[in-house]
């Protein structure tokens, strides 16, 4: 109860910061605020695009939640999202005369596996040589983002495209749109189903149990006979896999191809989403919607007024500061209790 209150407070304070920033920077703050809060609900286009924005954030939010639940920190979500999407798309472009559904399923599995593989490296390094997974996942991710950029600028760039992007995949592979004229696509149902499944799996499955116990007290897990190193590697792998899938779902639903830097911010925002949701896979859904609402509200408001769309970033940054500060305080308090 108290924790929910803290989450709501975080959101309220961040919104207050946003309102203040809008009031200070806009010449018509009343208009800007009106569009900021109501804009995403004005019509089907804005509303659909807001939900579309939340789709990859739900997946990255789940990805971060799973890693956090095992007390592992996957800071490489950005790279896993990006590279998962690149690997899946490249495969989709080269798979020839195969039934459409098969291609679609295959490339999702591949992006899932690639994202998972990348994160599993950090999990393995942690289990084997106690390499801090926070650092290793972050470094691997930055390297992969640059490699991905290079691939899209070079060998895989569509020469006809005006920007660094791959060729379009067959439009039949892509998810159907469900709310014209917006970008909202059927990937939403897949993502919601995954969120419910992850929730049930963390609560009631054997692996979910092992992840929870390992995350709550790793010495206890080891003492009781749980193979904690394996659990940490698996949790990292599943986390990365969901991130890889997040990129692929966005490509299949919205873009139809990989554009350089299309997923920038998905990973970091996913971490913030998981922190607001307190690792609860179901609460990840509203938290992701809230983040999407901030971006959409700022975008709509900047259409109609002189407000800058970067306002969304300011609000997101305040949320980030607040949730991490609170997380740090709880951590320090715990440590104080443990040492006294």
């Amino acid at each position: 109860m108290r924790k929910t209150l803290i989450s709501l407070m975080t959101v309220a304070i961040a919104l207050a910061v946003g309102v203040l920033a809008i009031a200070l920077t806009s010449s018509s703050p009343r208009e800007a605020l009106k569009y900021f809060f109501t804009g995403p609900f004005l019509n089907a286009y804005f509303f659909g695009n807001m939900i579309t924005r939340a789709i990859p954030l739900i997946l990255t939010g789940l990805a971060a939640s799973i890693a956090f639940s095992a007390s592992a920190f996957n800071l490489g979500l950005e790279g896993q999202v990006y590279f998962g999407a690149i690997a899946g798309t490249l495969l989709g472009l080269t798979m020839g005369s195969v039934p459409v559904w098969l291609t679609c399923v295959t490339i999702m599995i591949v992006s899932f596996a690639v994202g998972g593989g990348i994160a599993a490296i950090s999990g393995y390094l942690k289990a084997k040589w106690k390499v801090n997974e926070l650092i290793s996942s972050l470094l691997v991710s930055y390297t992969l983002i640059n490699i991905g950029d290079a691939l899209l600028e070079g060998p895989f760039r569509d020469p006809r495209a005006g920007l660094a992007a791959s060729s379009y995949m067959d439009s039949a592979i892509r998810f159907p749109r469900i709310l014209m004229p917006s970008n909202l696509h059927a990937g939403l149902f897949l993502v919601l189903a995954i969120a419910v499944f992850v929730f049930l799996a963390i609560r009631f499955s054997r692996l979910g149990y092992e992840i929870r116990i390992t995350g709550s007290n790793i010495s206890f897990g080891a003492y009781a006979g749980i193979h904690v190193r394996k659990v940490v590697i698996l949790a990292m792998a599943i986390s990365g896999a969901l991130a890889g899938l997040a990129g692929m779902v966005d490509v299949l639903g919205v873009h139809g191809r990989v554009i350089r830097g299309f997923s920038s911010g998905y990973g970091w925002n996913g971490i913030a989403v998981a922190l607001i949701a307190r690792r609860n896979p179901i609460l990840v859904i509203p938290a992701a919607l809230f983040f999407a609402f901030l971006t959409s509200g700022a975008e709509v408001s900047s259409f109609f007024t002189d407000m800058s769309p970067e306002i969304a970033r300011i609000i997101q940054a305040s949320i980030f500061y607040l949730v991490t500060a609170e997380g740090l305080l709880t951590f320090l308090k715990k440590r104080r209790e443990a040492t006294s």
């Binding site: 009631f204 054997r206 007290n217 010495s219 206890f220």
Partner: peptide
């Protein structure tokens, strides 16, 4: 620090050495 997980429930603390046995779990679900 070692004998229990403070934030976990009594049930989760008791089944930690037996949750994988056939009575307690079925097809990967507890």
């Amino acid at each position: 620090a070692l004998g229990t997980s403070a934030s976990a429930s009594i049930t989760d603390n008791i089944i930690v050495d037996r949750y994988f046995k056939s009575d307690f779990s079925k097809a990967g679900w507890i």
